[in-house]
Write a protein that binds this DNA or RNA. Structure first.
Lengths: 203, 203
DNA sequence: GTTTATTTTAAACGATTGTTTAAATTTTAT
DNA sequence: ATAAAATTTAAACAATCGTTTAAAATAAAC
């Protein structure tokens, strides 16, 4: 009748992810997580041994998911323009659904770069796929403006991220609520797509 | 011979700014600041009453300086293209000199939005100057592409910020040091300027 | 030079942090 | 139904947090 093992473990993991995303590692206490998961404080240590182990479980999961979903798009066998627009749409929706994700990943990377490099070990697999090659091919074909993919890809990531990274700042500076911000964000996305296409895919 | 009043007070303020920028409010301890300033822990409270008061002193100072320097550029009586390029150069140099500033301001705004709105009280004075009017005039003249200044200005801020916001992530993902990153960043700035001009100032 | 005021220090304060312990409870196995 | 194992709980642990205190050291005033 009551909760079984997996139930409690999952409840803690979900609550931990929510609170860590909102407040970061240092801003989050075990008691915050326990309260959010409606369980006893000691249970987090019973199931995950330590706050740090629980954190890295959440962190790696989020990072891996983010990277894999982007990788899947970058490796699609479709034209560059369609691919980049798809990438922008995907990142936009991802971050609209979870506005804290970008800031969280970048903050925690900055807080403990060493552990980040060690534990993720992701390297730059993102660029090891066929994306760079495809980009350069289309540059040589003349269908894409002559810039390096290594500079363009982070720029595109940043273009979408910046919308949501400045979310709270924007909402409070301009006194708008979440739905108004989302309208603003979608118009920004449209402009970004427009600008990027104008620059990269001159016709 | 030894330090006088202002010396110690200034030493603490400088150390506090440095540590707060690096670790944020929650990640910084009074003892961190004391060690960095090479003074006794109790002196921070002697001069600034509390950690929070010291923090807001630093925070408001940084925020005010950032806003005023941008405001000065936006209000210059020069053509839009020159103005925006100047803005990009200024923000780039500011953030290159202090890569932590953007993340710091946005994190702390997100951590305590209420206090942010109350204590800064800056409102959206940035847009109350003549910038928007000038932008719309140049749109009507046909020298600028028809987009709203309210969407374009945050986009430009974000374009530059994103370079440095992702700094640590980039450095560790691609295994480059600070000077290599700066080279990368300058090339990104060039592309951004190029892209922005292509989009806004079609000739 | 003595007294007063200011600055600095070491030590401790209560509160909160992550974690552990040992007992209580529930579930599972026989 | 009983014993064993797994789960949950309340309570406490040492460590660290921001802050205070009261005495020591220095500077200023007379």
């Amino acid at each position: 009748m009551t909760t079984n093992q997996n139930d409690t473990e999952e409840k803690i993991k979900e609550a931990a992810q929510r609170i860590f995303l909102e407040k970061g590692y240092e801003g989050t206490t075990i008691r915050d997580i326990a309260e959010a998961a409606q369980i006893n404080t000691a249970l987090t240590n019973y199931y995950f041994r330590s706050k740090e182990k629980l954190f890295w479980l959440v962190y790696e999961s989020l990072l891996k998911e983010a990277i894999q979903s982007v990788q899947a798009i970058l490796d699609k066998p479709i034209p560059m323009e369609e691919k980049l627009m798809g990438l922008i749409d995907h990142m936009f929706e991802t971050q609209a659904a979870n506005p804290n994700l970008s800031m969280f990943l970048m903050n925690e990377c900055r807080r403990d770069p060493k552990s980040f490099a060690e534990k993720t070990g992701v390297g730059c697999h993102l660029l090891e796929g066929g994306f760079i090659q495809q980009f350069q091919e289309e540059v040589e074909k003349g269908t894409v403006t002559n810039v390096s993919a290594e500079h363009m890809l982070p720029l595109i990531f940043g273009l979408i991220q910046q919308i949501f990274v400045g979310r709270e700042l924007h909402m409070h500076l301009f006194q708008v609520d979440e739905s108004e911000f989302l309208t603003f964000a979608r118009e920004q996305k449209r402009i970004i797509k427009d600008m990027l296409c104008t620059y990269l895919f001159k016709k």
